[in-house]
Every structure is written in C-alpha cells, then in structure tokens.
Design a protein around this nucleic acid. Structure first.
Lengths: 228, 228
DNA sequence: TTTAAAATATGATATTTGTCAGCTTTTCGA
DNA sequence: TCGAAAAGCTGACAAATATCATATTTTAAA
C-alpha cells in the first residue's frame, strides 16, 4: 500500500492541506483500486461513504433523466477528488461514475476523513472552496443548457474538452469519447451530435479520425459558442 | 438595529449554529435593508463581500446567457442565506438577484462572518451542507434543462413552485411571477411559456387569473413532467 | 481470422420551439 | 382618471431538433 504523503496527486486537491499525521492515518485506511475502462465506480442510488482520489485516468459523472436518457454532468480526471458531497450527506448518490479509460484511484472511507473535516479547518475550507467552484460551473451549465442551441453547446463542449484535456502532442483532445458520450454531454440525440460534428469537420473547424478529435479553428468555435 | 439572537429567521439557516457571542458581533456589524419589489440586491460582476439573510420576501437569482437571455437559476425566500459563495471566493458574482416582492434583508459583511467560518466548525459544516444541497439540485436542474422538453420543464417548475411557495389558503402559488419570469425559469421564449400555460388551463390542469396560479390536477402535472 | 454486435453516418420526416407581427388587457404614473 | 407603456395573448411561419430507417464502418468476441 503506497503512502499518501509521497503521492504527487495529492498536491492537486484538498488533501494537500492535511498534516503528516493526518496523511498517515488516511494512508492506513484507504484502498487503492485499478478500474478498467467502462467499469463503474459508483451508481445512482448507492451509498458512497467516502471519496475517491483519482491518481490516473478519467471518468464520466452522469445522471439518468426521467426520460430515460443519460446526462453527463462532468468529467473528473487525475488529481481530482470525487464524491466530496457524500462527506456531508447521508443520502444515496444521485450520480453515477464510469471510467472512460483505465484508472488508478484511492478510496478513502468517510468515517476516517470526516475526522479531518471536523478538526482541520484549512482542509474544510478547501473542500468548501471546491464546492463553491463546482456550484459556479454548475450554474453556468444550467444557463447554457437552458438557453443555448445544440450547436452552441457542442462548440462550447469541444472548447472545454480541448482546454481540460490538452495533453496530446498533436493537439488532439486527450480523452476518447464516443459520439453517444458527446451527445450526452451536450444533451442531445446521438444522431444530432454526429451531424453537427460532421458539419464542423466539413467547415474545417475541427478534424477527427474516429474518437481522435482536434480543434483546427478555435476562434470560429468560440464564435459558434457565442451564437454566431 | 434589531438583534440577530432574537431573530426567528436565523433558526432556518446556518446562522443557528453561531454562539451568543458570535451573534452579538454579527448583530453589531450587519445592516438591515428594505428592498422594494423589482429592486436589485446585487448584480453580475459586482463584488458581493458578504451574505444576505432574508427576513422576508422572495428574490430571483439569475444569470445572463451569451445569447442575451436571462436565466433564473433559483428563487430565494424568507429564512435563506444568499451569497454564501462570496465567503470563500474572491471573484465577482456571476449572478444577479432581484426582489420579486418587498423584502426585508440583513447584510452581513464577509470580513466579520469569515471569522466564524475559521473558528466555528459546526457553522462551517452547516454552510458546507448547504452548498452540497445546492450542488445536488443544480445537477438535477442541468439534467432537466438538457433532457426535458419545455412542456416537461414547465410542469416540473409549477410543481416545484407549488411545493416551495404553498402559503396561500386558496391553494394559489404564493409568489407572483410574470410570464417572462416563468419563461426564464424554464428556459424558453415568453410566448412559448404563455402558450403552454394556456394549454394547461384549457385542460383544467391548472387555473390562473393573471399572476395568481393554482394547480388543479397535481397527478396530471406529474405525468407531464415525466414525459407522458 | 471470421463474424456478429456495436458504433458511426446519412437521409427523410415529424415534432418542438423560436420568432415576428399584431392584437387585447392590465398596470401605473402624471 | 386618463393615456401610454408594459404585459399578456394568439396566429403564422421558420428554424432547430428528434425520431425512424437504413447503410456503412469499426470493434471485439468466438
């Protein structure tokens, strides 16, 4: 079992505010897991009872609508914590998390980390800031979903993916999403997503080969996102 | 200047976790305001630097989309805190708050209440829980906005308003919203909202006289919200 | 490797929703 | 109380999007 104190990933999230002693305790109780592409980290209706610290890989966090369609709320990647809300809620999860590629994660049980929440105020404040940030981007997403056209939302999503997963030397977006995933991010039918992607390709604004997508004309995409 | 300790409203939000001493300090620095219907509590781009505690009245919290249309994110009423996020963020507000009726509010400066966040962990945890709850409902709203039709969203919104503002003896929704406000809650054109409301009225599912709206057939509305 | 299943792609069409125009009713300030 | 402005309403039409059908390509399992 590796030690949290030596884990680089910790530097990228709220865990960096824990003391050596606190980290030792967390190290002792956490469980490391390898999660294969397509596997489920947790499901809707499940008691989460802890947080995941993502060491490597990306997962999609989604929720089923009453219409029976899946909406992807966010993509969570290396360095992030996942499931923070379970720490302050007794309710079951309303979200589902599925690995988009092979992942390395650590699971820290709620009962252990809750002690730090109660004693280490810097840590609590950091979690609070995280949630405030999530809340702000959730608000922005609500506005986009409610007010923008599918075309705008696709442009927006591509720009966002490009910024967030820009870890490919050739400029390709560093995460492989199916057309269905893309449709579920922007909240539309798969066919519509495919059509709009093809349009963007025809207009030389993006380029793709299967799931490898690259933005060619960022300015044009930004204009589309803004409604032009 | 009234004392927070004797204020009933405090019992309904995180301020209830403050000690007598803390409340005395807050009492001393807060400012009470009367805000008339239609007046702005704060605008997008403004430094908020504190929280509002709503003693009476309701306000709409909204954000402009890049398309130039206004999206109402939430309605905040008596007992609630408003602007909690400003406590842990240095950024300007991305939201705007406008009174829907005459309001009584207290404004507590950030620099005072931040002390309590740093020292009173029960208070911090309570704020954290609030944010977690907000985040959960924001997630649900994202899904609804992305996946549901305008008709479904209207039904949903009416049910939600009925539950949240059910303080009228005749069963009318206890807050007066213009047709434009309703459209801005569900993310559609005013004309579309008007048309769908008329439809529901024709089908005897709701009843309204101007801004007085009453639900007649809750079951039917629930079915519509679910897509039938 | 072969082959069935899944994913991607495209066309035709139906449905939903937005926009514009014109009208009526309500509200509110002079 | 009057009259203008705002809000509410309705119809006609255009644009956006979903749905269904079907073909093609890719993926993954036997």
């Amino acid at each position: 079992m590796s030690k949290c104190e030596q884990c680089i990933v910790r530097q990228f999230n709220s865990l960096k505010h824990l003391s050596k002693e606190e980290l030792l305790r967390i190290s002792a109780c956490k469980t490391s897991k390898t999660i294969k592409k397509g596997e489920v980290l947790f499901s809707e209706g499940e008691h989460l009872n802890g947080v995941f610290c993502i060491k490597d890989g990306v997962c999609k966090v989604s929720k089923m609508s009453e219409n029976g369609r899946n909406q992807i709320i966010s993509l969570v990647q290396k360095g992030n914590l996942l499931g923070e809300r379970s720490l302050v809620s007794e309710e079951v999860s309303n979200l589902k998390a599925v690995a988009l590629n092979d992942m390395e994660v650590c699971f820290i049980p709620k009962e252990e980390i809750i002690r730090d929440l109660e004693k280490n105020n810097t840590f609590t404040m950091s979690i609070l800031k995280d949630m405030a940030t999530s809340l702000k981007s959730a608000d922005n997403l609500i506005v986009d979903m409610a007010q923008k056209t599918v075309k705008q939302r696709l442009a927006e999503a591509l720009l966002h993916l490009h910024t967030k997963f820009n870890n490919d030397s050739e400029g390709y977006i560093g995460v492989h999403l199916s057309r269905e995933d893309i449709a579920n991010i922007i909240g539309t039918a798969t066919e519509s997503a495919i059509r709009l992607l093809s349009d963007l390709k025809k207009k030389k604004i993006i380029e793709f080969h299967g799931k490898e997508i690259k933005i060619l004309d960022e300015i044009a995409l930004e204009k589309i996102a803004q409604g032009f």
